[in-house]
Design a protein around this nucleic acid. Structure first.
Length: 277
DNA sequence: AGCCAGGACAAGT
DNA sequence: ACTTGTCATGGC
């Protein structure tokens, strides 16, 4: 949650009660379009270029942003109004999550565009993060709009209406191309409405996503967590699977309730950092 | 060089 | 209901 905010012609200086680690948040695999730049990170989201600089663990500078753009996009996108202190207090009752949290303190779950999250996490399956980033950048260059020199927005479904196996080959996305085509088709037909996922109950939104070819439980949960505000979603990938087995054995995994997605993110960072198993 | 990657699917037990 | 092979591509 925001404690203080100062706006000037240079940008917005935002101080929080509950921490924001830019590097962790941008590198933890929740989003794929933020990269190191200058003193901080730069990335494209919501059709906007953001520049973030870390001042201290609770303070971030949004370079060159206006008050209007901050209020309209950044506040929501970077999840600045959520009370992470409350979430962390709840989650750290579990001693294992508490240990993971020490490695992942300051992560905020970004609120990505649901269509972008859907396509991005379809691309993510059986893939590695550097290559996922590359495929997404090529997708944006091919079908997005140029918002400044060499910087492209993530395309919407309509601007992808003419995609085919042939013109997707520039992405080098492999077998995922046909999944992208199916997803875009279902969005364009109205069978899937990404913007509705947030207001739907978790189960309904989850089952709707599974109708897309190439979307299974893991991808669906990532879309719900990172693109539809469902923080109870708990995506289980290979890393989380290993972490759960290592930490909880064959015993029961605690129910992290409405903060499951945040707990998952802590475990993900912790497992990878320690090259677990 | 070879293993593996923020999986899903189909075919086989 | 569980296991297994397969799917492109390339990062490390």
């Amino acid at each position: 949650m925001i404690k203080t905010s100062e706006f000037s012609d240079k940008g917005a200086l935002i101080s929080l009660y509950d921490g924001f680690n830019i590097e962790l948040s941008c590198e933890c695999g929740q989003c794929f379009r933020f990269t190191p730049s200058g003193n901080g990170y730069e990335g494209i989201a919501q059709g906007t270029v953001f520049h973030l600089e870390q001042i201290d663990s609770n303070t971030v500078f949004f370079k060159d942003i206006t008050r209007e753009d901050f209020e309209k996009t950044a506040r929501r996108y970077f999840d600045l109004d959520r009370d992470y202190n409350e979430a962390n207090e709840y989650l750290c009752k579990d001693s294992i999550i508490k240990k993971a949290y020490e490695s992942a303190k300051g992560i905020r779950i970004f609120n990505q565009n649901p269509f972008e999250a859907l396509i991005s996490f379809i691309i993510s399956q059986n893939n590695n993060i550097p290559r996922i980033r590359g495929i997404i950048e090529r997708l944006c260059e091919a079908f997005g709009t140029e918002i400044s020199k060499g910087k492209y927005s993530f395309p919407n479904a309509d601007s992808m209406r003419d995609i085919s196996e042939e013109n997707l080959s520039v992405l080098r996305a492999g077998f995922r191309s046909k999944y992208i085509i199916d997803a875009v088709g279902k969005v364009l037909s109205g069978e899937i409405r990404p913007e509705m996922l947030e207001s739907l109950p978790y189960e309904d939104a989850f089952n709707m996503l599974l109708k897309i070819r190439g979307v299974g439980p893991k991808v669906a949960n990532c879309v719900l967590l990172f693109g539809a505000g469902h923080m109870e979603a708990f995506p289980v990938d290979v890393w989380i699977g290993r972490a759960l087995k290592a930490f909880y054995g064959d015993g029961p995994v605690p129910d992290f309730g409405r903060f499951g997605g945040l707990a998952q993110q802590y475990l993900f960072v912790y497992a990878r950092e320690n090259k677990l198993i």
